[in-house]
Computed example of a mutant assay.
Amino acid sequence: MKPAATARRPSAREPGDDLSRNDAAYSRLKDALVTLVYKPGEYLNTAQVMERFGLGRTPINQALHRLSAEGLVQIIPRKGAMAAPLSINDALELIEVRLVNEVLCMRLAAAAITGREIQELETIAQDFENAAAQRDVVALMNNDRLFHEKVAMAARNTMLHDILSVLHARSQRFWAISFSTEGHVDEVMAEHRAIVAALASHDAQAAAEAAKTHILSFKSSLLNMSR
């Protein structure tokens, strides 16, 4: 006698499926925003975004709300979402706040950074230079973000790290614009190297000055473009 056939149960969904889809939607949409694939002020048609990234409505909506909290997207009641507009005044206000917080971050990081973190920063700086040579804007932006993220983590101050994460997220589209300024990418390469050298020497004053130079260089490139 044959054993009774066992009904096949539908395969259970992996607990991480939704999380991975949400993360994928967030990462891809953020890359498109910060590299100006979606222009400032452009409305984001959910169906078209879903088709572009091959993801469902729920992860796309989750991503839009996360990016709204970071200031990259504006959610407009009864109208939908749009890429947040940019203005030079917004950039100048960000720069003022970054100067205060990033100089403090550099001083703290100079005291606390480890040899391994220095090596990681050197690798990221080299990856940035490789991306510049290949004219890979997405890789350029990602490595610039990773560089600042790594320095913020080295400061060993959770509150400051959270503040800088928000400031960097809001600054990234301005970075994308400034990178198109002739010679600015070369300036950023040199500034990254100066930051790494100061941190490796645990020289808080030199690290603070390197951060200030880096931010003011960014400001100068934006102002030159707005003239």
Rank of each mutant, 00 (worst) to 15 (best):
K2C: 08
K2V: 14
A4L: 08
S11V: 14
A12N: 06
R13H: 08
P15K: 14
D18A: 12
R21F: 13
R28W: 04
R28Q: 00
K30I: 11
A32R: 01
A32W: 03
V34S: 01
T35N: 15
L36Q: 03
L36M: 09
P40V: 10
E42G: 04
L44T: 00
L44E: 03
L44I: 05
T46Q: 12
T46S: 08
A47F: 07
E51T: 13
R52Y: 13
G56V: 08
G56M: 05
R57A: 12
R57M: 12
P59C: 09
P59G: 10
N61D: 13
L64P: 00
L64G: 02
R66K: 11
S68C: 05
A69I: 00
E70H: 07
G71C: 07
G71A: 09
G71K: 04
V73L: 00
I76V: 09
P77G: 02
P77I: 01
K79M: 04
A81W: 03
S87L: 10
I88F: 14
A91F: 10
L92K: 13
L92Y: 08
L92W: 05
L94S: 12
I95E: 06
I95P: 04
V97T: 14
R98P: 06
V103H: 01
V103Y: 03
R107M: 00
A111W: 09
A112C: 07
I113M: 06
G115S: 14
G115T: 08
E117N: 04
E120N: 15
I124S: 01
Q126F: 15
D127T: 07
D127E: 03
F128L: 03
F128N: 00
E129Y: 05
E129N: 07
N130P: 06
A132G: 09
A133V: 06
Q134F: 13
Q134N: 11
L140T: 05
M141S: 14
N142W: 15
N143Q: 04
R145M: 09
E149C: 06
V151F: 15
A152K: 02
A152R: 02
A154Q: 00
R156Y: 11
T158D: 14
H161F: 11
H161P: 14
H161R: 13
D162N: 11
L164K: 02
L164V: 03
L164T: 00
A169G: 09
R170C: 12
Q172V: 12
F174T: 12
I177Y: 15
T181K: 03
E182D: 15
G183S: 09
D186L: 07
R193Y: 15
A194H: 10
A194R: 11
I195W: 03
I195L: 04
V196N: 00
V196D: 00
A198W: 00
L199F: 05
L199Y: 01
L199Q: 01
A200N: 06
S201P: 12
S201T: 11
S201M: 15
Q205K: 05
Q205N: 06
A208H: 11
A210F: 06
A211M: 04
T213E: 05
T213C: 06
L216M: 07
L216Q: 03
S217V: 02
K219M: 15
S221A: 08
L222T: 07
L223K: 12
M225H: 03
